[in-house]
Design a protein around this nucleic acid. Sequence first.
RNA 1: GGGCGAGUGGCGGAAUUGGUAUACGCGACGGACUUAAAAUCCGUUGGCUGAAUAAGCCUUGAGGGUUCGAGUCCCUCCUCGCCCACCA
Length: 813
Amino acid sequence: MKRYNPKDIEPKWQKTWAKRDIYKAVDFDEKRPKFVMLTEFPYPSGEGLHMGHVREYTLGDIVARYKRMTGHNVLYPMGYDAFGLPTENYAIKNKIAPQVATEKNVANFQKQFDSLGYSIDWSRSFKTTDPSYYKWTQWLFLQFFKEGLASQDEIAINWCPKCKTGLANEEVVNGRHERCDTVVEKKYLKQWILKITQYADRLIEGLETVDYPSRIADQQINWIGRSKGAEVVFAVEERKDAITVFTTRPDTLYGATFMVLAPEHPLVSKITTESQKSDVEQYVTAAGAKSEIERQDTDREKTGVFTGAYAINPVNAEKIPIWVADYVLMGYGTGAIMAVPAHDERDHEFALKFDLPIVRVISNDASDDECTHDEGVMMHSGTYDGIRSSEMREQIVADLEKKGLAKERVNYRLRDWVFSRQHYWGEPIPIIHCEKCGAVPVPDEQLPVELPPVDHYEPTDTGESPLAAIESWVNVDCPKCKAPAKRETDTMPNWAGSSWYYLRYYDAHNDLAFADRKKLEYWGEVDLYLGGMEHTTLHLLYSRFWHQFFYDQGLVPTPEPYHARRGQGIILAEDGTKMSKSKGNVINPTHIIDQGYGADAMRLAIAFLAPYDQTTPWSNEGVAGTFRFVQRVWTLVQEYVAAEPEVNDAAEKDILVATHKTIKKVSEDLYEMNFNTAVAALMEFTNDLYRIKAKDSFAAKAAWKIAVESLIQLLAPYAPHVAEELWEAIGNEGSVHLSTWPIWDEAYLVADTVTIVVQVNGKVRDQLSMPANATEEQIIAAAKTSEKTQAYVEGRQIKKTIYVPGKLISFVI
RNA sequence: GGGCGAGUGGCGGAAUUGGUAUACGCGACGGACUUAAAAUCCGUUGGCUGAAUAAGCCUUGAGGGUUCGAGUCCCUCCUCGCCCACCA
């Protein structure tokens, strides 16, 4: 008998599958239901695939294979998200073109992909850096531009001094650039902006129509941060200026005892009085010099300075001082607040420090000197005294609105998307700047605007991309008026190409459109999208925004891109910490395969490890375990093949019951994505078959045939190579992966005998094996007379008997 | 400070949603095979008391409650993880 050695079978089948092209997705196949399985495409770094990739793609592959075997026309595609900083940095360091570095890395990734046995339709693959792809990224950008959703503005942006580029709000985590951990700075730059805030409500509402886990939906809703409130106008005393504030608590207006402007607020310099001028200027300069991290530190003591000016509270005409303080942020609301120290903790702290008046306007359970934001009954609020604060909230805005001093408003935490990067390795923004015509889109027939070759890829300190140095490329004629004009030299962020890539899989090689409408309609929504939780407020949000806009433009047939989203957990190192190069605890999936475990054992180990969405440490011993399991299956099937045919039907019933039980369990688990318990069920099944074999050898050949075939088929999504090899070994024609998934027969799952648990006062005292058709009376009688139960029941009064059919009897004494 | 989630053997994790807690795997221990080891195969393996594979008690982060019965439901508390955060 041949021993199980993955090296003998895995490369062989990988080649055969590629040659026979068995994983090809068929456009317009109407006979079978379609299923689009998507996993996030990788960034082809120099390091190759890591465990996180392998978990995601393996689980995706298991689902894709299962769906294929259940009769679906499956599209499981893969591509490369290749623009971005790591490749650019690599190119700078090694003085090679990023195009060349990308080719090299992609070739390496491809080799690794092949060795894992994924059922990907590679005919639809592409890189976001292919001009034939980014032609359409540019074209789609121009649709935003034409609708006024992409524009260039000079605004304060987050700037990474190390990467020398502007960043989107989503890329800044705790004041640092999420990629390189450098503290970001504020910088005023002319930047391209995508107006994602215009889709804020749609991005929230759309979540109700899709199947996302609540933690993903909640996180997006949280990030968008919709809050309902009102804008209220405060006049500045003895001036024509007015300060508009945003508040979610207009009910506390009578308690506003001062106002605070952000240091960057344009009114600061205008309203500051002569005597306060130097203090205010000093404060504003100092605030500007602080890093975002310092600014955002909530433990910091409040600072601020009085402007010398006063505002008039519109509800009671009271004169209240206007302060400047950096706890008010220019980027949220209007950059100015009305301060209500009695009902807002930050204002409270500020008032205490600077000895400002505190006026309580809501009466509730809180003690007098306590700051409380709870609801209650109004006080010190003129004619509103005595009504509920929640009622007051609506009324006061309506009343002020009549005087033009307030209006309802919704505010978002979400910021518009800073979309330009001052780097070489990205899609050029297809705009030409003409002195006369302004920003002019590059005409469709001139797309793509290809990246020109340059000598130096280094970013500059000036906020200009290296493309600006290539005069022959920059200087062009205006497409409109033919006057001399200049190309936009900023490029798009790495999130651009990934915002629509799934659509390209539907029609990867189309030169006339980003995808053919009929193909978009045929494939429709992505049925299942598996990816990392870390993309919830980045890629996932961005691509939903793009898709919703495309839908509005009539470019795509569905309002949302992904029907169901699932996030897989992180695989930690064996010591339970995050894998990292610096700690030297990185597990390389390729090594595991090469060590002799093979792809099948590794795929099983990944599936078996834990629920897919759980963060869990990796275990090398775990792969050893799944390898042993594959080996046991291998040996069992080989022995079955070699066994002499018999006609004895000794264990037929046991074999078929185990088989159908397992088919049911594995099918249901796969449907629910409970990969770990499905593998456990396959292991149990194998153990059962070994037990039956030990007792009766391979008698009941007919039943064994069903059992072995089912085992191989159920195993196929997890361990595709060994399943294929064994499928052939038992004499089947064609691929197991194109065979029909077995169906269980409930008839085998109805047991003749059931185990009834006997409890006395809630404690288990005995188990009875009873015929399945035994009546309640028979079971109670048996329970009462059982030897073990008697010791507890004898001589006592049974107060109550509970009978759960087929499960238990409980006596209360 | 706000939102979400989780605490079960030495470890990763099961538990039909209120009905035999610890499936499956790892590790460990014992045995078979072997000159020996690896590999493989067969056992045992939550804790305590017991010679026991007799019997009993205890056990799902802690404490209380509901129930004939709670890992599962309710209340209080503790710990950990993720996301957001001077967001007005």
